[in-house]
Amino acid sequence: MEFLTSPIDWWIEPFADNIFMRKALWSGLLAVLATSTVGTWVVLRGMSFFGEALAHGVMPGLAIAFVIGGDTTLGALIAALIMVFGINLIRVHSPLPDDSSIGLLYVGFLALAVVIMSSSSGAYSGDLSRFLFGSITGVNDGDLYRQLIIAGVTLLGVMFFHRAFLVMTFDEVQAQLLGLRPRLAHAALFALLATSIVASFQAVGNLLVFAFLVAPPSTAAMLVRRIPVIMTTAVVIGAVSVVVGLLISYHQDTAAGATMALGTVVLFMLALLIRSLSGSYNMRLAS
């Protein structure tokens, strides 16, 4: 119970005394800002499987960039955009359902990344684990600047396309009639999703970025109704998960990315429990 008996030592000193913790905090908060805003539309439009697939789809770009000594962030972004293009291409020309085309590319991209990273010219298993699970305590100033730019682009894009995303979520035909160009809006949403994932993989890794993308918006959607409020609440929930997850990781020597991601799921389960208990209580009062 040190977090209650010695609050300054537990809550403040890790960030005050360690520059790597401060950088990790900023990295996590920027990741949350990017993923929770665009993740709201992912949750509301039922695109969670696509988000998961895209989170893993950046892996070949990471692997190739690492092997040739290039920028892994740029490699991840290129791979994500290629996957978005590939999904749309298969969707147009294949009679299979959308989830089939997404699943095929998901498996193919992830397998390609593992093959590259496990080859003799690839990296060691430790590097593969870093890409999969993140290395938030190892971020540098360059990583933070890239995250800041990508998070800013994502936020501006979500604001610019807000009306199109809103109408398209409930009635795509109406969006077409209103001249909102749903195909362009679809492409913009996919691009924003790709950039938000790329902004977050350094913080929590590709296997765990899905938690940041889906859990905070899902939790917020159970608590509030208006979409801007859902986004804001999701960012707050994600930020709490980042702060508490980093501190638990610091004090208990656990994996930082996994601890933060677990925190988002724990908060979702708590919100679900509270909502269920509240619903049962209201039903009893009504009866």
Rank of each mutant, 00 (worst) to 15 (best):
L155P: 05
G157P: 11
A188I: 09
F190Y: 13
L155K: 02
G179I: 10
T169R: 06
A188P: 08
M159E: 12
H186K: 13
H186L: 05
G179C: 10
L166W: 11
L184R: 00
A164Y: 03
A185P: 02
L156E: 00
F160A: 13
H186W: 15
A194R: 05
F160G: 09
T169Y: 03
L193H: 07
T154L: 05
L148W: 11
I149A: 13
L180V: 02
L148N: 13
R163V: 15
A191R: 01
I150H: 01
M168S: 15
M159V: 15
D171C: 09
F165E: 06
L166G: 04
L184A: 11
F160V: 12
G152P: 04
L192M: 13
R183Q: 14
A194Y: 01
L180E: 03
L155N: 08
L178N: 07
I149E: 06
L189G: 09
L156C: 10
M168H: 11
P182M: 09
P182G: 05
A151Y: 08
F170S: 12
T195L: 15
F161R: 07
F190G: 06
I149M: 14
F190R: 09
V158P: 08
Q176V: 02
L178V: 00
L166P: 01
A164H: 07
L192C: 06
Q174A: 14
L177Q: 07
L189T: 04
A151C: 07
D171I: 10
L189Q: 02
I149C: 08
I149Y: 13
F160M: 09
M168Q: 14
T154W: 03
I150T: 08
T169W: 02
T154S: 03
F165Q: 00
V173T: 15
T195C: 02
A188G: 00
E172K: 07
F165I: 06
A164R: 05
A185C: 05
L156Q: 00
L166M: 15
R183E: 10
V153C: 00
Q174C: 12
L192Q: 03
A175H: 02
L177W: 10
P182H: 09
E172Q: 12
F165V: 06
V158N: 06
M159C: 15
A188K: 02
V173I: 15
A187H: 06
P182A: 00
F170K: 03
Q176I: 00
F170E: 03
F170I: 11
M168F: 00
A187S: 04
L166I: 03
L177I: 12
A194T: 09
V173S: 13
R183C: 06
L189M: 10
R163L: 11
M159W: 15
D171L: 01
E172A: 08
T154A: 14
R183S: 02
E172M: 00
M159A: 15
L180D: 06
I150G: 02
M159P: 01
A188L: 03
Q176T: 14
L155M: 10
G157W: 08
L178M: 14
E172N: 06
L193S: 07
G179Y: 12
L166Q: 14
M168R: 14
F170H: 11
P182Q: 05
T169I: 02
L193C: 02
R183P: 01
L180G: 04
L177M: 14
F170A: 00
F160Y: 14
L184Y: 10
G152D: 01
L148S: 14
V153T: 03
F160S: 07
L180A: 07
F190L: 14
R183D: 10
F190A: 03
V173N: 07
T154D: 06
Q174G: 12
R183V: 13
